[in-house]
Design a protein around this nucleic acid. Structure first.
Lengths: 141, 141
DNA sequence: CGGCATCCTTGCCGATACTG
DNA sequence: CAGTATCGGCAAGGATGCCG
């Protein structure tokens, strides 16, 4: 295996179970984290604004997810000593390296939504046919 | 408002909780689904080959995830009537529209891994300072 | 080889109450 | 406004056994 110096990205393999990248992937592979990161691309946002924009997220989950993203260095948290207190969340430079990727994943569903129910209907229909065909004819596709 | 040309992406908003795109995002925001989709980019693969490559995934979870991806039209399943039976999984054309996005997300961790532990260490250190400050004032009860 | 069925444990999340 | 703390339900997922 050739090693020509430079950043040691090849020292990590997300397919290996003991690799620390698995932990990071776990963090990113979360619906709420993706929505938060995507929402912060427009600029810094206050806690309750995030909560209102991301429908159905609870305060607890929003806090937990923000803490994890902050710990991993993807999101920054700034407290302003107003009364009452104001807290602003923003992407860090590291977090901004994810913007394009997160955006395309979060919005892929919006772009391709019409195709999904059709695929689901076809799949479910094929299941019904299999059950009907039990005991009659074994037909392979 | 009436439109021509079928459903548009703007008809869907992933931030709305009643939007069907949330269900699709849920499917994609899954560590195992991302690893499977990424692994299939190299070409069709048999079940046990996927299981071997994606370390620590169990047979149950692999099966479940593949079924869901198949139902959503992202992955195809082909059975060959060999003895014993051979089953091949591959990306569908719809699934291939996700390849770039999934790949960059799945491997972002590998590329940026060195930065994450530093951020975590800094974050944890700031927490320790907070706790020490509290502990000097209030003794543990 | 490529599954499915079952049991059982964990941890995630919602709901709720309280605080600076 | 922006959290922390606690309880409880339930579903995701591991372990195991069996099958065409």
């Amino acid at each position: 295996m050739k090693r020509t110096g430079g950043p040691r990205a090849r020292d990590y393999d997300v397919y290996e179970d003991q690799c620390p990248t698995r932990l990071v992937l776990d963090r990113l592979a979360d619906k709420w984290a993706l929505l938060i990161l995507d929402r912060l691309q427009a600029g810094p946002m206050r806690f309750n604004l995030l909560k209102r924009d991301i429908k159905r997220i609870t305060q607890k989950v929003l806090t937990q997810t923000l803490r994890k993203l902050e710990r991993d260095g993807l999101v920054s948290r700034t407290v302003f000593a107003t009364v009452p207190v104001t807290v602003e969340y923003a992407l860090t430079p590291l977090g901004e390296t994810l913007t394009d990727t997160v955006s395309s994943l979060a919005h892929w569903a919006e772009r391709n939504m019409p195709a999904v129910p059709k695929a689901q209907a076809a799949f479910d229909a094929s299941l019904v046919r299999r059950q009907v065909a039990v005991g009659t004819v074994h037909r392979l596709r």
